[in-house]
């Protein structure tokens, strides 16, 4: 099983370590030629969505990755990754990949002083620790989107077919639940 990790900007090394600990092979995607190989799943890490979105477009990756996701490639987006996958961002005119039928709010908890950690249920997989860094949340979901976690009445994790998103950063904790769930999605696809 080979997982590509978008490594344009942000916390991609943390995902590599997490998946390495679960026995999955990973490689970094920094430009077009990196996605010409075959792979089984894609992670879009946290970072700044404006930076990653711009680099996706300028490095000629947006359309190719969109096609792969629409073709069923399992993808997992954390924080900025959630924003890149969202069909609509309430307080941002950009749509980047726009493959997932969710509406998100960017920097929804304010500046860094609004960053926080919590613990809440993740689907039926029990409680997981959650780190929110200048995080977004999901303010609306379309049909066929399964809500996996809510914190303080806000949706912070969801799944639609081959797409999994979290507003928090499971790659920053030791708990492997969310990454295991993603690898299960990859295996089942």
């Amino acid at each position: 099983m080979k997982i590509g990790i978008l490594a344009l900007q942000g916390a991609f090394v943390e995902h590599e370590k997490m998946l390495g600990g679960l026995g999955a092979e990973t490689f970094e995607i920094r430009q077009k030629r990196d996605i010409e190989r075959a792979f089984d799943g894609l992670i879009i890490p946290g970072g700044e969505s404006t930076v990653q979105g711009k680099l996706l477009a300028e490095l000629g990756l947006t359309e190719k990755i969109k096609a792969l996701i629409n073709g069923g490639l399992p993808v997992f987006g954390t924080c900025a990754g959630l924003l890149l996958l969202a069909k609509c961002i309430e307080n941002d005119e950009h749509v980047y990949l726009g493959t997932m039928d969710i509406t998100a709010v960017r920097n929804a908890y304010g500046r860094q002083l609004g960053s926080f950690s919590a613990a809440a249920g993740f689907g039926d997989m029990g409680e997981v620790p959650m780190t929110f860094i200048r995080a977004p949340y999901i303010s609306g979901v379309g049909d066929g989107v399964e809500i996996l976690s809510e914190v303080g009445g806000r949706i912070v994790a969801a799944r639609q077919n081959n797409m999994l998103v979290t507003a928090f950063h499971p790659e920053l904790n030791d708990n492997k639940t969310v990454h295991s769930a993603f690898l299960d999605m990859v295996r089942a696809s």
Partner: peptide, 18 residues
């Protein structure tokens, strides 16, 4: 400690950036 972790985490999100 939790605050320090969150603050360290923000720097992690800036990595690979300018």
């Amino acid at each position: 400690n939790e605050r320090f972790e969150l603050n360290k985490n923000l720097a992690q999100m800036l990595k690979g950036g300018v």
